[in-house]
Design a protein around this nucleic acid. Structure first.
Length: 161
DNA sequence: GCCAACGTTGGC
DNA sequence: GCCAACGTTGGC
């Protein structure tokens, strides 16, 4: 069973196009325990990710990515020159985790938050819950497939029938 | 362990 | 730029 996730990124910081250009990235800088725990304990190689652009107009799902390396220490926590430096992190206890991602496919049509909110099928999805700030969220199969459909993608192609 | 102050996220 | 909703910090 493939795990399904949504991960937020501000496109002016690191957009889906940047992931495509880089071919692969470390998802570093997450400093929230809930999000860390999901990366450290639950995300598995091959899991699929909706790549969500936050803090932009309009906010939207831009593409699909996949997990290519499971949770391991986020070394930026130990780097005093990094903006993600955490003085409480040590080599023995790095505190924070990250995963590696690769792009799968860009959405032919970006799926806006408004589109998701206006579709009753998405009722109950954490993304549209008021005050939901978590930058990594689990996504239900039915929601994942619907986003792909709205993006103009074939869910069976992307997810494997 | 409580809780006020503060910082961050992220839609609007 | 505003502000609601949280999460974190630190004094007590």
């Amino acid at each position: 069973m493939t795990g399904l996730w949504l991960m937020k990124s501000e496109p002016h910081v690191y957009a889906y196009a940047d992931l495509v250009a880089d071919g692969r990235t470390h998802w570093d800088g997450v400093r929230n325990y809930q999000a860390r725990n999901m990366m450290r304990d639950q995300m598995k190689e091959g899991d699929l990710v909706l790549y969500y652009h936050s803090n932009t107009k309009p906010p939207h799902v831009a593409g699909v990515a996949k997990v290519v390396r499971e949770g391991y220490p986020d070394h930026t926590a130990l780097d005093s020159t990094s903006k993600y430096f955490d003085p409480k992190a040590t080599a023995d206890n790095p505190r924070w985790s990250m995963v590696d991602l690769e792009p799968v496919v860009e959405c032919p049509t970006a799926v806006s938050l408004e589109t998701i909110k206006s579709d009753p099928l998405f009722e109950g999805m954490p993304l549209i819950r008021r005050g939901q700030r978590l930058s990594i969220q689990p996504v239900e199969d039915v929601h994942f497939r619907r986003v792909l459909m709205l993006a103009g993608l074939d869910a069976d192609d992307v997810m494997g029938a």
